[in-house]
Amino acid sequence: MEILRLVRIVLSAFFGVRKRASHEADFANINIVALPFVAVFLALCIGGCIFGVVHLIAHSTSTMQGL
């Protein structure tokens, strides 16, 4: 359950939708050592998703140029 809390904290920090009261409450009860690892993992996942979508769009438009 703590991993889900860490994911929620990191995603809300990425997108900037965090209230101060919930921010302070979460940081009182989490494992600070694991937080950077979760943040890096989620950043890689989001970057990979963006790269995949761009690759799909670029690939589909490059095959249409021959028509």
Rank of each mutant, 00 (worst) to 15 (best):
F15P: 03
L44M: 12
F14A: 01
C49P: 00
I32R: 04
A39G: 00
A28K: 08
R5A: 05
V33R: 03
A28M: 07
A13M: 08
I50S: 10
A39L: 06
P36N: 02
H23V: 09
V7P: 05
K19C: 13
V40S: 08
A28E: 15
P36A: 03
T63V: 13
D26K: 01
V54Y: 08
G48S: 14
I30R: 00
V7H: 05
C49H: 12
A25G: 07
G16T: 11
R18G: 10
H23C: 06
M64F: 10
I50G: 04
M64D: 14
S12G: 11
A43T: 09
V40D: 01
F14V: 03
F27E: 08
F14P: 04
I30D: 01
G66I: 14
F27V: 09
R8Y: 09
I50H: 11
I57D: 12
H59S: 08
E24F: 07
H55N: 10
V17T: 11
N29I: 15
S62G: 10
A39R: 06
L42R: 01
A13T: 12
I9W: 01
H55Q: 09
L4C: 03
A43R: 06
V38S: 01
V7K: 09
G66L: 13
V17E: 13
L44Q: 12
M1N: 13
E2V: 00
R5K: 07
H55T: 10
F51G: 11
S62I: 14
S22R: 07
L11V: 10
R18Q: 14
V54I: 14
F41V: 12
A39V: 02
R20Y: 12
A21E: 15
A58L: 11
A34D: 15
I50E: 15
G66D: 14
V10F: 06
A13Y: 08
R8F: 02
A28C: 06
N31V: 04
I50P: 06
I50T: 14
L44A: 15
